[in-house]
Design a protein around this nucleic acid. Structure first.
Lengths: 113, 113
DNA sequence: CCTTCCTTTCGACGATCGTCGTACGATGGT
DNA sequence: ACCATCGTACGACGATCGTCGAAAGGAAGG
């Protein structure tokens, strides 16, 4: 069978998205880099993001983004694919992500803080 | 003379505004309430904000907002007037504050966290 | 001068954050 | 089977955060 998905990834429904949580999720250089990378390149596996932090740290950032409703994650084989919840975000907070990402692409401190 | 201004309020120039700092400043219910109140009512003294935190806590939040470049403060007599740096923010991060405040006005947790 | 009002500064406190290393789990190929 | 790969879970660590109370300071008015 193709069904497994152990961790049972939790994604909050659109109605539950909270502005403060989204802003807090985006108020970090590493997480902003993740989001900007997804905006530019679309869905991709966890290990392919241009950030230089430990894998466990990356997992932590993904959880913050996922629980805030900014990203969506699905499992396929060995790797976990991550994508932006663009439509959902825009339905709940119109123009927010666009405005943020329009100012974000340059000068992102990717490395360690 | 009318010049005194003991604390020498520091306001970062437009070019120095950092997106992460702005998002971080806005990622707090109390500070978001402050900003939304300013947007609705314009400039006002510190003590007139509908937030229920201790005065010293309020001062702390004002400093975070001021150093992020979100608000401007000036002294007049006994009280300190606070205002939004709307034009500056919009020049540096076009549409950002509008998008945030458009989603902010309702359901702000004003009280203690 | 003295008092009152408005706000700040200075610790202090518990809570949360970002980071890491280690260990574990699940998948897919050899 | 075995093993390499990808990502997570679990502490743990120092740093920062939001909160407060107590004390201080400047401004305006008696």
């Amino acid at each position: 069978m193709t069904s497994s998905r152990r961790p049972l990834l939790v994604h909050p429904p659109v109605a539950d998205l909270r502005l403060v949580a989204v802003l807090n999720a985006l108020a970090d250089p590493t997480r902003l880099t993740i989001v900007a990378t997804l905006r530019d390149g679309g869905e991709r596996p966890c290990g392919t993001f241009p950030v230089s932090v430990a894998p466990s740290t990356l997992t932590h950032h993904f959880r913050v983004l996922r629980e805030a409703g900014v990203i969506r994650q699905r499992e396929q084989g060995k790797q976990r694919w991550t994508d932006l919840r663009l439509e959902d975000l825009d339905a709940r907070f119109p123009g927010l992500l666009d405005a943020i990402l329009a100012s974000a692409p340059e000068g992102l401190a990717v490395g360690r803080r």
